[in-house]
Amino acid sequence: MRTYIKINKENLRHNYLEIKSKTNKEIIAVVKGNAYGHGIKEISQELALSGCKFFMVASINEALQLRKSLILSPILLLENTSDLKSVLALKLTLSIMSLKQLEDISKTKIPLSIQLFFDLGMKRDGLLPYEALEAKKIISHSNLLLTGIFAHHTCKENYEKETNILTEILKIFDNKIIYHHQSSNYILEKDDSKFLRIGGALYGLVDMPNINLKTVLKLYSPIWCIKEVKQGEEVGYGNKKTVPENGYIYTIPFGYADGLKRNTTLLGFINGEIIKNVGNIMMNHTLMFSKNKYKIGDEIELIGDNLNINYLSKQYKTIPYEITTSLNPNLKRIIE
């Protein structure tokens, strides 16, 4: 008996087509972070079958997984890597995050496909707007092929201002060049770009008032050990926690090695009730408590129809992305 993840491929396909129908744009599917914890191989294959023609990853290893999964579509690589031979061999498009990186790569004379990433105010990485002219000059004297320009917005309040900055950058380059700056939170914002760069919304991890998105991932863990306990009994490492009332301790095979934070108050749903853990999360186990009696093999829903990911993120004081990307890649994923 093992904890496992269910991936609803119909919901994934629905989300992809729903976004396409609302925007009439090409979608660059962001599958970094193991496809936001959903499983990069399974998700990418299903998206390709749904018609997706462009993908984005964070590392060469992720790109390699896509190529091994027979994804032949263009892949944009976010990693600032020196392994240019792999970039060329895997036919990747390399993201350029700084003027120095661009200068160094141009000196190698390797004919790489590149896209320039511009910093619109986040201060994380990316070329600064005033460096656009110099970047164009470097590219014009190199073997590099510029296939696009992209950026990331800081927040909705700054969207218009940052879009205007990007518009000025684009004027320096060929006006026919591909560009993308709209991510999941900006799907319905008006824009002339023919591309959207979508991650969280594909997986139903974003609440969109005018787009009907469905959750793709569910998480279940079976009861594999039961202990009857009385109120006040001590449990767990160090016996630092006590049982709130008479009932049962249900051990499930899911712990911080599987993606939980050790100090989390884990919520589970079973037979119409929400139950919680008692004591700290362990590496491979969690002790759940209920006054009601269940049997070995009964499944506890940890993410699903009754414990929606957006509800859970509020309870855990985090965001849906952190919850799903934390899930161990070794957890079994079932496509349904």
Rank of each mutant, 00 (worst) to 15 (best):
S95C: 11
S95I: 10
S98G: 13
S98P: 14
D104E: 15
D104Y: 13
K107Q: 12
K109L: 05
I110V: 13
L112I: 12
L112N: 12
S113L: 07
I114N: 10
I114G: 07
I114W: 00
L116D: 07
L120M: 10
G121W: 04
K123Y: 03
K123T: 01
K123N: 11
D125N: 08
D125L: 14
L127Y: 04
L127S: 05
L128V: 04
P129A: 06
L133Y: 15
E134A: 09
A135V: 13
K136H: 12
I138H: 07
I138P: 10
I139T: 06
S140R: 12
S140V: 08
H141A: 06
S142W: 04
S142D: 04
T147H: 06
G148M: 01
I149A: 04
F150P: 00
H152W: 08
T154Q: 12
C155D: 15
C155H: 11
C155W: 00
K156N: 07
E157A: 13
E160V: 10
K161T: 06
E162A: 03
E162G: 05
N164D: 04
N164I: 08
I165F: 00
I165W: 00
E168C: 03
K171G: 06
I172S: 12
F173D: 01
K176L: 07
K176T: 05
K176E: 05
K176Q: 10
I177K: 07
H181G: 02
Q182R: 13
Q182H: 06
Q182T: 01
Q182I: 00
S183H: 10
S184R: 10
N185H: 12
Y186I: 02
L188G: 03
L188V: 02
L188C: 08
E189D: 05
K190E: 14
D192H: 14
S193Y: 02
I198M: 02
I198E: 02
G199D: 06
G200W: 14
G200D: 15
L202W: 06
Y203H: 15
L205N: 10
V206Q: 15
D207I: 12
M208E: 13
N210Y: 15
